[in-house]
Every structure is written in C-alpha cells, then in structure tokens.
Simulated scan of single mutants.
Amino acid sequence: MKKKRVSITDIAKALNVTPSTVSRALNGGGKVSEKKKQQIQALAKELGYRPNPIARSLVENKTQTIGLIIPEFTHHFYSRVLAGIESVTSKAGYQLLICTSNEKKRQEIKSFQTLLDARVDGILATVCKKNDEFGHLQEVLESETPLVLMDRICEEIETSYVISDDFEGAFQAVDFLLQTGCTQIIHIKGPKVLSTSFNRFMGYKEALRKHQIPYNEELIFEGNDPELPEKIRTYIKTNPVDGVFAYSDYLAFEAVNVLRNEGISIPDKVAIVGYADEPISTYVTPQLTSVNQRPFDMGSIAAGFLLNQIQDPNSPLEFKSLKTELVTRSSTKKNQLARSWE
C-alpha cells in the first residue's frame, strides 16, 4: 500500500497547533516561539515531511523550475551546454524541464507551449534551424516569462543572448588555413536561416579579403544538400582545391570521406577545418582541426542571465559573445608563421 504523504495538517494535529503555525515554523516566518519552532521542525523531520511543491508554487507564484529547449542531445555541444546550465541552476535550487525540438518548427512551438503551461519560472532555448517564424517566442515575452536564447540569434526577438563569436571563430580558422599556404578553400555552409551560418560565412570571406584572395562562388557548397559528397567529388576532379572549412565537424567529416575515397592526402594536398570541436574530431583519421565554442561556459552564463531576470524582472537585458579557440590537429599543416620561429 502506498504510504500517505505527511502534511502540515498532520503535524499541526500531533502538536495541537494550527496549520498556519506549522507553516510559519517550517518556512522561517515570525510569531512562533523558538521552543515551539524547534518542536515543529523536529517532528517534521521525524515524520519525513516534505513540502508540496505544487502547493508552494500556487502560494509563491513560483515553481522553482526552468524550461530548457535544445535541438537535440546527440551532439556533444548541447550536452556540454546542458552541463553548464545545471552547474548553475542546481546550486540555485532550480529543477530543469528539458524538451527537444529535433530541429523541427512544430515540435519547438509545442515545447514552448508545454513549458508555459507548466508555469516554469523562465526558459532557456536554442531555436531550431528550420524555424523562420518567431511568434511563439514573442508569446513567451508577452507572458512576462524570462527568456534567454543561446547559440543562435533571432533578430526579431529582443531578449538576452549568449552566443559564441562565430565570425571571429571562422575568420581564425580560414586565416590559419591561408597562413599554411592554402589559397583555394572550399566552404561548406550551414542552414540558411541560422545566424551561425551567416556569421561563419562572413568570417570565411573576411579572411580571404585580409589575404587578398578573390572570393570564388564555385567554392561554396550547401551543407544540407543531399548530393554534397558527389558535388565535392565532381568539383575536386577538375578544379584545384587545397583547403576545406566546414560549418560543423560532421560536414568536415563528409569532406574527409570524399578526399579519402579519392586517394587525396590530408593535409598534404588538402587541409580541413571543422567547427564545434565535437568528439568526432579526435576519432577520425587524421584528427580534425576544429573551433571550440566553449559550450559549457555558454550554458552556465545563460543560466546566470536567466536567474538574474527571474530574481529581478526589471533587470536589463544581457548579451555575451564568447571567444572561440582554434584547436589544431593533424588535418591541417603547421602554421607557416609559427614554423618561421622554430
């Protein structure tokens, strides 16, 4: 038989006091003598009393829960973001309600509605790559539920953001390739609707401009094209290519497979750089040079921003762009400038 949950009323009857007296004693309220407070707290501990979070949320208008919406769990990036969030929220006494959009617009909209219905105290989210309408985000703001967005920017939504500096990260990656002697660098782009795709593409172009390398539209490939491997294979057979910069490590891996199947040496003939520094970058051969976005820091800072808004609804919106780090491995040659110092 299921054990009956001990209530404030049970404690009040046992000590012949009112439920309100028990409530004040357990919640630090006044007008309860120290002796009586100690008796109540001791009995509550003995009986295994636990506060009812639903009842408390109705009284305080707070649920001590935070909603989180991320595209998926399979990417190491989002698992590290989650770890960063939990490092902050758990210490602050908040529980996470986690939803995934699976990069689908309809599922993302449903997830936001679910979290609003659950009366979460705030929401952390990364919008999905297939979303180009943001009425559901505006609905969150209109409900006065604090919202912090991570990794991807929505120009239409005025809220707090934590992102990585994708422009600078891409610039550093391509600048490195150019310094090692590459001049014909393929760029495999990310989804068109994402700010991250645009910023990485702009970083690619800026690095070319710095080194006075003409921009060549033919070197640009769409990462979501199902024929991507074949198109790269066809292009490299008749055109000089000595570098690849991909929107993600997974797209970089696609390029690695194409080059390997064509018998093209990496990095001697073609150097490759990915993005996000996923575990796959150390599992492939050769190991992949990649851009680390500091996802743990992204999660912890975003959680801090959200807690600030929850505690003070009038606090100003906050924005943080995290510096990235290029992690060099064997898919690229040594930096020529660094070599000159050896």
Rank of each mutant, 00 (worst) to 15 (best):
P286I: 08
T100D: 11
I185F: 05
L137G: 02
D10H: 07
A252H: 01
D249I: 07
M150G: 00
K45D: 11
C128V: 04
R106H: 03
E218A: 13
A92C: 03
D165C: 02
Y250L: 11
T63L: 09
L116W: 05
G48A: 10
A25G: 06
E155R: 15
K231M: 01
R339C: 08
I70G: 08
G223I: 09
T74H: 09
E262K: 12
D121G: 12
K105A: 03
L26W: 11
R294E: 08
S281L: 14
L43M: 13
L337E: 15
I40Q: 05
M202H: 12
G299F: 10
S340N: 14
F176C: 06
F253N: 11
A125P: 03
T74D: 12
L288D: 06
K333L: 07
I266M: 11
F171H: 04
D268Q: 15
F221N: 05
P279N: 10
I54V: 09
L149F: 12
G28E: 06
D151Q: 07
A125F: 08
P71I: 04
A303Y: 06
T126I: 14
D166S: 06
D132W: 05
S90F: 11
G122M: 01
Q287L: 06
R209M: 13
W341T: 13
Q39L: 13
D242N: 15
T282H: 14
Q38W: 04
N308V: 12
I280M: 13
H187K: 07
V256Y: 11
T183N: 09
K35A: 06
K333T: 09
I11V: 03
Q336F: 04
C182M: 10
V241Q: 00
Q107C: 03
E108H: 04
T126Y: 10
P279W: 12
K105C: 04
I272T: 03
E217N: 09
E155H: 15
V148L: 12
V81P: 10
S160V: 02
T238M: 06
Q336P: 03
G203K: 00
K105S: 03
L124P: 00
P240W: 03
T285K: 11
V148K: 01
E318L: 13
T9Y: 15
L115Y: 02
K13F: 02
Q172K: 14
Y247C: 12
I11G: 01
S143I: 05
T324C: 08
L208N: 00
I185E: 00
V284K: 11
I236Y: 02
G181H: 12
S87E: 15
K192Y: 01
G93F: 00
P146D: 07
P19L: 08
M150C: 04
P191W: 03
Y215T: 02
V256I: 15
I301Y: 05
F171K: 03
L337M: 14
N131H: 06
Q95V: 09
A207P: 01
A125Q: 06
K62A: 07
E103S: 09
H136Q: 02
P286F: 05
T65H: 10
N27M: 08
